[in-house]
Design a protein around this nucleic acid. Structure first.
Lengths: 190, 190
DNA sequence: GCCAAATGATACAGACCTGTCTATCTATAA
DNA sequence: TTATAGATAGACAGGTCTGTATCATTTGGC
């Protein structure tokens, strides 16, 4: 039973299937055999597109990164004021962590399953977090807040705490207060 | 080469070795064979003390939980004022995440490697986080802050964000601002 | 319709993992 | 001295995993 329609190319079906399985169960817990069975492709097809499982993981992470930024763009589209944009981001996070399909942050999970900082997948995850800090700092600067770099770091802690709460507690988690907390941190830098 | 002194009982040597390996590399990445080789015990000795690997993991988590609360007690010993105690906790976290031997929170890693909320190890991890919320709320109440339950949740997000940063970035991480952030969140509830 | 490229099905090698089993050794106490 | 309990060493079963190899089949471009 293929979980993904046959219209997609083999490569896309593999990536789509791997995304759902990796996100839900983790990288080490999901084997190649499970992925090809669910995607309905042959093992050699997978290995022709991805030289090794590590390459599939990296491709999945880069795809997830793109999806994340698309989602975020959508959540703050139409908002011009930089401070309002910051608040909208944390509003969106607060809403997302309440939904049952949210299982936290896949980049956090990557850092847990691949603790070595040198490892390729860990570096992709790290780059994602650094990009978030840059985004926060940029918005804080444009909002004329007092210490943009400090605030950017603090906001990352808050966001990551929210993802942790979603994974640890499930849909009913303490991250419901994340937007109010972000507002307090921003107000402290006004 | 036994990494732990022979004076300890076999059970303690197993737990001590497993602690270091599990914390550093993760649960699935560390096999029973590695643990017994490092601890210098026979395989049957391990399986006489722990019926299965899962039981060793749970025992490790409970031991880690005890160590955590001992550490926290030590960090706030001698401080009476509840608000000062809260601040001291986040000061201590901010210091800990800068040390190279800090690799984040093992309970977060547990929730990542065992996502199923029903799983025993996940529940031990969850109980640890719930106990933290209780502690925060209790201190916030005694400090006569405005919304103790809300603040407790927000502080947990902050602390978990700090642990994530330690694991993701290494010793030079954005969690250096965690104490200042906690102070801002507390001040907002004054 | 044809041909080349991509994909499917499946077996297989080699490594690793958990957990069991047996047989031997050692220390302590009666 | 001897009985008992616990530890040791190592083989082993049964399963899983990644990655390779082989060969039949299907698909897409012209």
């Amino acid at each position: 039973m293929a979980a993904t329609p046959k219209q997609l190319s083999a490569r896309e079906r593999i990536l789509e299937t791997a995304s759902q399985l990796f996100y839900r169960h983790g990288f080490q817990a999901v084997g190649i055999d499970t992925i090809i069975a669910e995607a309905g492709v042959a093992k050699m097809t997978l290995y022709r597109h991805f030289a090794a499982k590590d390459d599939l993981i990296v491709a999945y992470l880069e795809r997830s990164n793109q999806h994340f930024w698309s989602w975020l763009e959508g959540e703050i589209a139409g908002i011009d004021d930089p401070e309002a944009r910051l608040l909208a981001i944390f509003d969106a996070v607060g809403r997302l962590v309440r939904s049952p399909q949210c299982l936290g942050c896949t980049f956090q999970a990557t850092a847990v399953e691949f603790p070595n900082l040198e490892y390729r997948a860990h570096q992709v995850a790290l780059a994602h977090k650094q990009a978030l800090i840059s985004t926060f700092r940029d918005l804080a600067e444009r909002a004329n807040l007092r210490a943009p770099a400090v605030l950017a770091n603090q906001l990352l802690l808050l966001m990551d705490g929210a993802w942790v709460a979603a994974r640890m507690f499930g849909p009913t988690n303490p991250a419901t207060e994340v937007a109010a907390a972000a507002q307090a941190l921003i107000a402290a830098q006004r």
